[in-house]
């Protein structure tokens, strides 16, 4: 029984619920528009129908989607940091981000030429389910393929340093390829930019369901492997002396990492910093093993992205900031503050 961890989990869940309520209420129509017809039946039914549509079909899934995407990224960040025994590891480390970006660029290119034939315009803002599904699927497949490419280039999971370097190489090369593709399809630049910055605006109920499913599965696997990750943190030799099948464990963790990251990236684009910052924030609050670290980092990621989403919609309302910019600025600033506070506490500042 870990009291401190339970307490933090409860606080994070409460924060999540509060932020969700806020997220649903901020905007042109809020909960009160939903409740009003119940209290005052004489209100125009058309208006309340619109309000309920806004809240239930757009804002609620978006809010839940933001939380779930953040939770996936927080989980992936904690897994990555445990896997690589490196506090600077983030979910995009194995090339998943650049793989997703390249795939989206290619999909946009393909759709662009297709729309040339059919004479209609497109963008990621398109409401067309087909376009959304196509881009989402492309991003997921791209992310997973890039991680596989990294695994092939590093010739397996035996050496974490080799994995890291292969991930860097894949990231750079696929990034260059993405730029090249964009060079040939300047009309998709804007759509691409919104993907690179990340956005929670498009998450619908289907996306929420998918992300929640993947999240639950990932949490279950990560929880089961939590003690083993603790064992890995003693060093590879010691881990193997304890009878742990290190390579198999790494492979399972990389799959969890790739699928969780790919799912989040596919729905919300490349949200910056949540995956890196969430585990650090948890660590700054308490010392715990990976079992709890992964769960708490996940809840923390959800809170971070949800908070950023609320701020992004509220700061310059009725305009909206790209949520990725908010997470980058907030996450970066907080991490920096944390770093200096810790350095000062250790007397090394």
């Amino acid at each position: 029984m870990n009291l401190a961890a339970w307490r933090l989990a409860m606080v994070l869940l409460l924060l999540s619920a509060t932020l969700m309520l806020l997220g649903v209420c901020i905007g042109s129509a809020g909960f009160e528009d939903l409740l009003r017809p119940l209290v005052y039946p004489q209100v125009d039914p058309a208006h309340s129908a619109l309000a309920s549509q806004i809240v239930l079909d757009i804002r609620l899934p978006r809010t839940i989607g933001a939380w779930t995407a953040g939770a996936l990224l927080g989980l992936a960040g904690a897994v990555a940091q445990g896997l690589f025994r490196n506090p600077l590891a983030d979910p995009y480390l194995l090339g998943s981000a650049s793989g997703a970006a390249l795939a989206v660029a290619l999909a946009l290119l393909a759709m662009g030429s297709a729309s040339g034939i059919f004479g209609n315009t497109f963008s990621v803002y398109s409401g067309s389910l087909l376009v959304r599904m196509g881009l989402t699927g492309a991003a997921f497949v791209g992310a997973v393929l890039a991680v596989m490419l990294t695994l092939i280039l590093s010739r397996g999971v035996q050496h974490t340093l080799r994995l890291l370097l292969a991930g860097v190489v894949v990231g750079v090369v696929l990034g260059a390829a993405t730029q090249l593709v964009l060079l040939f399809s300047p009309e998709s630049l804007q759509a691409m930019q919104s993907f690179m910055l990340g956005s929670t605006a498009f998450a619908g109920w289907a996306a929420c369901g998918l992300m929640l499913g993947v999240w639950l599965l990932s949490v279950a696997i990560a929880w089961a492997l939590g003690r083993v990750l603790d064992g890995l943190s003693l060093g590879e030799t010691t881990a193997r002396s304890l009878g742990l099948p290190v390579a198999a464990i790494r492979l399972v963790l990389i799959i969890v990492l790739a699928v969780a990251t790919g799912t989040a990236v596919a729905q919300t684009g490349l949200i910056a910093f949540v995956g890196l910052a969430a585990p650090h924030l948890v660590r700054s609050l308490l010392s715990t093993g990976y079992r709890w670290l992964i769960v708490l980092a996940s809840l923390m990621g959800g809170v971070l992205l949800l908070a950023a989403d609320v701020m992004a919609r509220w700061l310059i309302a009725p305009q909206e900031l790209p949520v990725g910019i908010v997470t980058a600025v907030l996450g970066g600033a907080y991490l920096l503050w944390l770093m200096h506070r810790n350095a000062m506490a250790r007397g090394t500042a």
């Binding site: 025994r85 603790d230 003693l234 060093g235 030799t237 010392s287």
Partner: peptide, 13 residues
Amino acid sequence: WLGQNETTADDLK
């Protein structure tokens, strides 16, 4: 087995 200079398990109790 007790190895040397391996651990990074700083956050574990």
